[in-house]
């Protein structure tokens, strides 16, 4: 760990994705420095989520490369991308609603759980220790967001309001201690106040976890301004601008494509 903290943790180079004849992502290039929060902006359908999906292996990119911590992860399966240290949330919350908060967070912890059938069925004492460890970890993590929620770990997620679900989704992504967190519109469907709270949480988390980098897809400009170190703006699958918020907000092309349109 002698790397300076300004090193690029994620380097996306000329990433493309076409669906049939439609180019959703066109030679997209960006990089994320260790510890940065990068805002990914653009009108609807500009390729933001597509770039997340291509990076996390939900579908293979049509061209270009993705390097994570120096290793080529282009086109790897979602499982391998997760193992490499990238975790994500989804635009439309994808929690398992009938399952408990704890269950959902443990799904995110899958990489560190013992999965052997014999261990799980027959070595119940050892399993209990692992369960208790998982419980402590999950509880500690949830507590950073909400102490009230930390006392309700065995309640089904489906009964919770949207902001709590978003928090749990972020916990699910964080429990595996990723080095890069991809947040796909975490504020979707929430009120202004809730969004502010959630962003506080996100800044807080970044402060606690050493070296965690975050890419966040977000529409609200106030949020972007407050929490990001860098921004990248997409339009029609192409990058049209990048830089700190002040820079992109002043860019005429961005205003035309994005700020004016919204």
């Amino acid at each position: 760990m002698t790397r300076p903290t300004t090193d690029a943790v994620l380097e996306i180079d000329a990433l493309s994705k076409t669906f049939g004849g439609v180019t959703a992502l066109d030679a997209f290039t960006m990089s994320v420095r260790r510890g940065d929060i990068v805002g990914l902006l653009g009108p609807n359908g500009s390729g933001k989520t597509t770039s997340f999906n291509a990076v996390t292996g939900i579908f293979p990119p049509s061209g270009g490369t993705v390097r994570f911590d120096g290793a080529d992860i282009t086109g790897l399966s979602p499982q391998k991308v997760y193992a490499a240290g990238i975790a994500r949330t989804f635009q439309r919350s994808r929690l398992c609603l009938p399952l408990s908060i704890f269950d959902n967070i443990m799904i995110g912890n899958h990489g560190r759980l013992t999965k052997g059938l014999w261990f799980n069925l027959m070595r119940r004492r050892a399993f209990r220790r692992e369960f208790e460890q998982g419980y402590e970890d999950a509880r500690a993590l949830v507590r950073t967001f909400s102490t009230a929620l930390a006392d309700r770990l065995f309640e089904p997620v489906g009964a919770l309001p949207m902001i709590e679900r978003r928090r749990i989704e972020i916990c699910r992504a964080l429990i595996s201690r990723p080095r890069l967190l991809l947040l796909d519109e975490p504020s979707a469907g929430m009120t202004h106040d809730e969004t502010t709270q959630l962003m506080d949480d996100i800044l807080d988390v970044r402060g606690r976890i050493e070296g965690l980098s975050i890419i966040i897809i977000e529409h609200e400009m106030g949020v972007i301004e407050r929490i990001t170190d860098q921004c990248v703006v997409l339009n029609y699958g192409r990058k049209i601008c990048e830089g700190p918020y002040a820079h992109i907000a002043a860019d005429p092309e961005v205003q035309r494509a994005y700020l004016g349109a919204e």
Binding site: P78, Q79, C96, L99, D103, M106, H110, F127
Partner: peptide, 23 residues
């Protein structure tokens, strides 16, 4: 057990499961 949890995750959302390393 974790195995049961994994099966539930696969049933409820296989795409999300894959993103958390579940085979």
């Amino acid at each position: 057990s974790w195995v049961g949890l994994t099966l539930d995750a696969v049933r409820l959302d296989d795409t999300a499961s894959a993103c958390f390393g579940i085979g």
